[in-house]
Structures are given as C-alpha cells and as structure tokens.
C-alpha cells in the first residue's frame, strides 16, 4: 500500500536527517513538503517496487537544495532505508546535500541551478515522441529563475508544445542572500509564464487540496501548452523559528533547536 506522505512525517524525517548530518538547507526542504506530499501521494504514477520503471512519471527536483524533502518521501517508499537517514553526511554514505541522479528516485543531479528543468523538458519530450502518456513535473525554485537556462527551457517547452510538462515553482520568496525582490526581482511570475504560452495557476503551496485541485485543473487542458504551477510557499514552513527566516538556508540544528523542532512537528501530527 502506498505510504501516506503525511507532511508532518516528512518534516520529521528531514529534521532527523539534518540533525544526524549537521546539514543545512532545512528552509529549502520545508517549503516543498506539501507539494511533494501530494505529488508522491496522488499525482505521480510510479511502480512502488521499482524506482527505475521506464513507464514512471518523472519528478525532477531542479532546485536540488530541497532534496531532504524528497529523501523523506523516498524513505517512506522504502527506496531509502533508516540507515540512510541516520547516517546522513557520514563518511561513505550515499545521500548528498543536493539532488543526485545516482540515488534511486532522483532523476537529476542539481543544485547547480538551472540544470534540472532542461533535463525534465528532454524527458517530457521523449515521452511525447513515444506517446507513452508519461508526465514530467519539474520543481524549480523562484531564486533559480535567475538562471538563464530556465528561460531557454521555457521557450523551448512551449515551442515543442509539451503539455505533459508541469513546472512547479517553489515561490518561497527567498534565495541564498536575501529575498527574491532584493536580489533579482521576478515581478509577476504568472504573467511571465502566460507570456511564454504556458497555462499557469497560482496556488497556496501548503494547502494540500488546493495543490491537487490546481494540478488537476491544469492537466485537464490537453492543448499543447506546457503547465506551470506557481506555489506560494513559506521558506522553513512548519517550524516556527525557521519560517521566513532566511538564515535557515545555512543554519544548523543545535540539540535544543532539534528538540524544539521535533516538538512542534509532532504537535502538528496530533
């Protein structure tokens, strides 16, 4: 049976592995928890027993910094095991701090930003050419949109009429050194996607049913236009002292903060 991918469970795993590995990028992982919960729980088609099933839908995590959220999902699927979580960043372990295509369930090697979306476009294009019905969901960060290849990929996807591609923007409003407005203003993202011939919807990226409704509404239109979901999210969502505090792009958990984070997350489970 499919796991539940309950957001609080996923956040708990992220906190546990971040503490085990003294790892950073918690804020980046927490903003995409609900998105991944719904993608893995409802929208992606895959074989639970085989991450490499050639007929799988593709989930491309182009914003590789959020990879702990994906690891948490892969752990629920049993594609990663408890040892991977408890030994995160330990010498000789297999999970890295950014998305890595050698990990079962990870499609791309990213974190060097602006790479994954193009690979996702290629995957969507191959599926369209072979008429397999496979879809590709590519999660990009709003900060990542600074990268030139993102715009190249958008132009190309629209030109190639890839309506089996959905770009999901994790619009948490922050990037490494500040807010997206401070660093490189993005303006109206929905308008930009529209101008690039995408079907686009904004959504509250932490509202599970709203996410599903938006994905379904976009996918209902088989019109040759690629899809974009602009998910308004909160960086660090789910732990009070991390929410919208950009230091949690880089900060590490102390034992006290770890206990507090677990307490808050477990409170959300109750």
């Amino acid at each position: 049976m499919k796991p539940s991918f309950h957001p609080a469970d996923l956040r708990k795993t992220v906190v546990e592995m971040a503490f085990a590995g003294n790892a950073v990028h918690l804020g980046c992982a927490f903003s995409i928890i609900e998105l991944l919960s719904r993608l893995y729980g409802r929208h992606l088609r895959y074989d639970e027993t085989n991450p490499d099933d050639p007929m799988r839908d593709y989930l491309v995590l182009s914003k590789g910094h959020g990879v702990m959220a994906q690891y948490a999902c892969l752990y629920e699927l049993g594609w990663l095991d408890r040892k991977d979580i408890d030994n995160y960043f330990h010498d000789g372990s297999r999970l890295k701090g950014l998305s890595d295509a050698h990990v079962p369930g990870c499609e791309v090697t990213s974190g060097t930003l602006g790479h994954g979306l193009s690979v996702g476009v290629g995957l969507a294009m191959a599926a369209a050419r072979k008429k397999t019905g496979q879809k590709c969901y590519a999660i990009i960060g709003d900060g990542e949109i600074n990268e030139g290849p993102i715009w190249e990929a958008m132009l190309f996807a629209a030109h190639a009429k890839l309506d089996n591609l959905m770009i999901i923007v994790d619009a948490n409003g922050f990037q490494a050194m500040g807010t997206t407005d401070e660093v490189m203003q993005l303006g109206d993202l929905c308008a930009k996607f529209s101008a690039f011939d995408f079907d686009v919807l904004p959504v509250d990226g932490h509202h599970l049913d709203a996410i599903s409704a938006a994905i379904e509404a976009l996918e209902a239109k088989k019109n040759g236009r690629p899809k974009a979901l602009v998910a308004k999210t909160v960086k660090g969502k789910g732990v009070s002292y991390m929410e919208n505090v950009n230091a949690w792009h880089y900060s590490r958990l102390t034992p006290d903060l770890y206990v507090q984070a677990l307490r808050e997350i477990e409170g959300a489970m109750a």
Binding site: L117, S118, V119, G122, A126
Partner: peptide, 14 residues
C-alpha cells in the same frame, strides 16, 4: 545550455 539538458533527458528516456 538547454539543448544539452534536453539531450540528457532524451538519452535518459532511451
């Protein structure tokens, strides 16, 4: 840059 990424995706899909 996009072309090479797309080629990677196409190759990944066979």
């Amino acid at each position: 840059q996009n072309m090479v990424g797309v080629a990677a995706g196409l190759a990944k899909a066979g």
